[in-house]
Simulated scan of single mutants.
Amino acid sequence: MRGQADLFLGLDETETPIQKPLTSDIEVKRSEQRRPYQLDSTYFEAAAEALEASGQYRILRRLHPRPVMTSRVAVPGEKLAIIVDTETTGLDHSQDEIIELGMVAFTYSEDGRIGDVIGTFNALREPSIPITAEITRITGITPDMVTGQTIDLDAVENFLQPAHLVIAHNARFDRPFCERLTQGFSLKAWACSHAEMSWSDFGFEGTKLAYLLSHCGWFHQGHRAVEDCHALLEVLARPLPSDAGYAMSHLLTSARKTVLRIWAEGSPFDMKDMLKKRGYRWNDGADGRPKSWFIEIPEASHEMELTFLRQEIYRRDVEPFTQQITAFERFRAAS
């Protein structure tokens, strides 16, 4: 049986040990005759398994995207989701622009089991504003790479049209940029694998995509749009610890919930600490929404929240402005 050392050296069992050369000329001659090691993936995987089995090492494997199934038979009841990621010139969707759009379309079942990848989309775009050195450092995208590049918006719309759900790892960032690019994105339900997943409940100590992927045992070329889409797909498809099912199943459960957004407009200034302690957030009004404290709560908690506002904050009978928020409205720029 091949010894564990052979897994790293790749030597044939028929090779005999090389004797110590008598002269430097003999050593040079033997070095010239010795064939180079030919290590293939079988050796590397066996070595990785041996290291993992020792309990002293954790191994990260390079993520290889799933193949695109262009010819397949549709499964009854399956749905279609699209993972989207953008690279942009900055953080402000009202001024900055998309410089790369990546999408991966895949099938899924009602219980969150992920099926086949059925399409991918990736395109660069030359913006009307400069790409800074900092953005190049973060994304790896240089001005030369996008010169003369455009995104075919008709192709984007056709790619989006059959999707039941759009997923992003930071939908509050990506959705406004995507909707500014083309209106097809505004017609879809959205889910956020960052904001709508309680990763800490499943033993994850971070929520960044690179961390989640490494926790699952892979690494990838991050900060390029379609590569990040493939990475998120594998995170969502991976079984969670303690038989908790698939991450995609939990994400669907969160996305399907309807919440109420209650605006505490005109609330007394000296009540701000009480509102903040209860979970209210401040909106400065710059996005067109009320300049006010607000909170998002389950529908079942509506009456309880009204009682709190009337008795503890306003100390009078009020009917605060309330919005019903579903996956179709969530994460919009002004929603």
Rank of each mutant, 00 (worst) to 15 (best):
residue 144 D to F: 02
residue 218 W to P: 03
residue 101 L to W: 11
residue 63 L to T: 07
residue 158 N to H: 13
residue 328 F to T: 06
residue 123 A to F: 06
residue 13 E to V: 15
residue 297 I to E: 02
residue 282 W to Q: 08
residue 110 E to K: 14
residue 265 E to Q: 14
residue 320 P to Y: 10
residue 15 E to G: 02
residue 272 K to G: 03
residue 328 F to S: 04
residue 136 T to N: 03
residue 85 D to K: 09
residue 33 Q to A: 10
residue 24 S to E: 13
residue 138 I to Q: 07
residue 145 M to V: 01
residue 36 P to N: 10
residue 206 G to R: 15
residue 79 K to E: 06
residue 292 S to Y: 07
residue 110 E to G: 04
residue 32 E to A: 11
residue 113 R to G: 02
residue 17 P to I: 08
residue 167 I to E: 00
residue 191 A to L: 01
residue 25 D to A: 14
residue 98 I to Q: 01
residue 321 F to S: 08
residue 229 C to R: 09
residue 121 F to G: 13
residue 231 A to M: 06
residue 300 A to T: 11
residue 126 E to H: 07
residue 174 D to Y: 08
residue 44 F to A: 14
residue 84 V to Q: 09
residue 36 P to V: 11
residue 156 V to M: 08
residue 258 T to Q: 10
residue 181 L to E: 05
residue 5 A to T: 05
residue 121 F to A: 06
residue 117 V to M: 05
residue 266 G to I: 00
residue 302 H to F: 15
residue 305 E to G: 08
residue 197 M to R: 11
residue 116 D to Q: 12
residue 96 D to H: 13
residue 46 A to D: 12
residue 99 I to W: 01
residue 305 E to N: 14
residue 311 Q to G: 04
residue 213 L to V: 07
residue 28 V to H: 10
residue 16 T to P: 03
residue 319 E to Q: 06
residue 132 T to G: 01
residue 142 T to Y: 03
residue 333 A to H: 14
residue 211 Y to D: 02
residue 37 Y to V: 14
residue 250 H to P: 05
residue 41 S to L: 08
residue 308 F to R: 09
residue 219 F to L: 04
residue 137 R to V: 00
residue 301 S to T: 06
residue 154 D to V: 05
residue 280 Y to H: 13
residue 235 V to N: 09
residue 263 W to G: 04
residue 189 A to R: 15
residue 99 I to Y: 01
residue 305 E to M: 12
residue 19 Q to Y: 04
residue 270 D to I: 00
residue 237 A to D: 00
residue 202 F to C: 04
residue 225 A to H: 02
residue 222 G to Y: 02
residue 257 K to L: 13
residue 143 P to T: 11
residue 136 T to P: 00
residue 152 D to W: 03
residue 99 I to M: 03
residue 86 T to F: 11
residue 172 R to I: 07
residue 331 F to I: 07
residue 190 W to R: 07
residue 212 L to A: 08
residue 90 G to E: 02
residue 286 A to E: 12
residue 318 V to P: 01
residue 109 S to Y: 07
residue 272 K to C: 04
residue 7 L to V: 11
residue 138 I to L: 15
residue 33 Q to E: 12
residue 82 I to V: 15
residue 281 R to H: 12
residue 220 H to E: 02
residue 120 T to G: 05
residue 141 I to E: 08
residue 97 E to R: 11
residue 40 D to N: 15
residue 75 V to C: 07
residue 308 F to Q: 09
residue 325 I to V: 15
residue 296 E to S: 12
residue 325 I to F: 12
residue 243 D to T: 03
residue 271 M to G: 04
residue 283 N to I: 00
residue 189 A to Q: 15
residue 241 P to H: 10
residue 276 K to V: 01
residue 303 E to N: 07
residue 86 T to C: 14
residue 176 P to L: 04
residue 259 V to D: 09
residue 127 P to Q: 11
residue 134 E to S: 11
residue 192 C to K: 09
residue 277 K to F: 04
residue 326 T to V: 08
residue 235 V to G: 03
residue 326 T to S: 14
residue 62 R to T: 03
residue 229 C to H: 02
residue 93 H to P: 15
residue 170 N to D: 09
residue 318 V to L: 00
residue 46 A to W: 09
residue 131 I to C: 01
residue 41 S to I: 08
residue 21 P to L: 08
residue 236 L to Y: 03
residue 36 P to M: 11
residue 52 E to L: 09
residue 13 E to K: 14
residue 74 A to N: 12
residue 224 R to W: 01
residue 277 K to Y: 08
residue 245 G to Y: 02
residue 301 S to Q: 13
